[in-house]
Design a protein around this nucleic acid. Structure first.
Lengths: 207, 207, 207, 207
DNA sequence: GATGAATGAGGTTTCATTCAT
DNA sequence: GATGAATGAAACCTCATTCAT
């Protein structure tokens, strides 16, 4: 049976309920640790209902992934980054602020669900479709940051902007994710400061 | 029945065969995608034999993890890093070389099995024991790099060495891992160069 | 996944079918000789269905035990014992009749399934929960017989009624169970007569 | 490979060690709960050695059963019963003493291993060979007690001695076994006294 | 003869998915 | 459309027994 596309309000609510339940369970117990019956139960619907909204478990995960990246992206942009992006950047301290704000925004955005984040990145392999999907989402970030750097390219200390974006984005993502995800002795603030220093010097200080 | 500790030669060989098979399969198909029967088959033994050497699938994974980190560590050290570590570092170009060599050594070490690496890091969650184990292994790296930086602390541009080590290690690991792991348009060399620049400027160029 | 509590009619029927099948198989081949797949097959359901109604094999056995004792108890009571219990007992031959009727009722009740009976008593050990459950059911009998004897305590030849009940109940149970259970040369009637004599003299004839 | 019949001392010791280990484990964990590897381990030999002394697990159990009945029988006879059996029995109190001594001897004998006893009786079904073996051993008791009663037949209150023996032996066995086997509130002594009363009145007091 | 490693059939259990109501 | 019961393939694991050394 093909998955239903709900048009009525009730149907849309059910679909959302399933996605929310799935999101929570994936975050808590992982994709493999969660089964469709549980998702249905948590969503307050029958197993069969689950399958009338989704063909399989996987597409549910896809949607959750998409939703997650949308949330992160919205959060970063909403959090002043967009504003910065549109303001003129001239002075040295403007650059510093740019880096600072972006890192803080990303850090803030990662409150959303570090558990889900790890589950998503963990699943990047194992299924080519999942990889494809995640790469696409990541590329949006890469493109965004690339555009941002392009805007200030005359002041950049780096030459290979394409490669630089990769380095910068994945480094920042990883360091911040780990702060959110794990217990650690060093205060987050200290690590964020160092990360900021690293980014700033790399991008704007000629060595 | 408790896992067997082989005493005869044959037993030791079998145990190794099982671990090798498991390692290959985990790398290829992931932990969840691999089952004990397959491992046994690939190792050329019966299912029961698998279970007389290991209580469950998990401890096999543990051993594989340990072995992997040992390999990586051996490779990095063997690959000149150790040598650098023991040589005097004075001039600007010495620092540059230090960073360069370490990054290249790490890159080289990641040939070993990027697939296994991702599977290991993916499994860092879901099982507290796995997390514990991996954290321990990671800490060895952190400590090593920390010691290295301490040696040149008077020339370091960073102040908070503890936080800096975290930032540096995880950034480098992540960027390199991605190079090994994914298809991408940008040549590895370009990314490695940028990574090197970033590290160098951060650590040794006051901004 | 937790055992299902059926709500629909169909589910209740399935549950009953599983219990019936299990009961028959436990009686025929013993608890250890019966496996879940067989139970499911005999009940006409898939293996998975079995496990959606019961978490394990053991709880099925529990239910079968409970059902068995209920049947026995119902049979004994229905079979005139209850009536006797409520009638006045005065003369010597009343006492004789009391003993006679109870023993015959018990004998009759043991038609139900001597095989299951032995399997149940055999399983009294090995699992504390099973023991607990069986002891509880046995105590109901002890209590019932104790009450019966208490009613005629002034005519009883025994003094320690508490101990007497234990002796009487377990002796009768065992002798009758063996009649039902095993091939033997001596006719059941002869053994029952002797059992009756033993009980009667013990309880009502001062020696 | 056919089971070995050891002739040398060492072989006999090994065989005994295996049987002792098996006996202890069967008593502790039941026949089904014990596996050959464990038996071998507890006996301090290799698995293979176990199988060079016994073809299968079952014959080990057979031997254990035989040994157990021999022990019980020896204990009862050694414990004065034999003496009574050979002494003249005339007076009322002689009969009383006869019953008393036999019951106490049986009670004493059941110290040996109530756990093994239950495991043996539990296994009476499930395997025809086991049943056969146990019945034979039980019949020895029946015959012995039958002979005893025959000796005093002129003073017996029962007429059907054959049936009486069955009733008496199984009742006593069961009641005593339960005393040994289970926790209970009533003191053993009280139950034994009642059992004695029951037996005495039944056998020697005309009602 | 003893050792302990190896076997593999068979049991238990799980869960994504389908289907009858 | 919704429900929850049913499916069965496939995973996990055990252990009586055989076999190579």
């Amino acid at each position: 049976m093909k998955a239903r596309k709900p048009v009525q309000d009730r149907g849309i609510q059910t679909r959302t309920a399933i996605l929310d339940a799935a999101k929570a369970l994936f975050a808590e117990k992982g994709y493999h640790g969660t089964n469709s019956k549980e998702i249905a139960a948590k969503a307050g619907v029958a197993t069969g209902t689950f399958y009338s909204y989704f063909d399989e478990k996987k597409p549910v995960f896809f949607e959750v992934i998409r939703g997650y990246y949308r949330e992160i992206s919205d959060a970063v942009l909403a959090d002043g980054a967009l504003e910065i992006y549109s303001l003129p950047i001239r002075t040295k301290s403007d650059f510093r602020r740019l880096v600072h704000e972006l890192i803080r925004a990303l850090y803030k955005a990662h409150t959303i669900s570090p558990e889900l984040h790890r589950e998503i990145t963990a699943m990047i392999y194992g299924d080519p479709e999942v990889e494809q999907l995640i790469r696409e989402e990541e590329n949006k970030t890469i493109t965004l940051v690339g555009a941002l750097l392009a805007k200030v390219s005359d002041r950049l200390a780096v030459e290979d902007i394409g490669a630089a974006v990769e380095v910068v984005v994945h480094s920042a993502e990883e360091v911040i994710h780990r702060l959110r995800m794990f217990e650690h002795d060093i205060a987050d603030e200290r690590v964020l400061n160092e990360l900021e220093d690293m980014m700033y010097r790399y991008l704007f200080v000629k060595g």
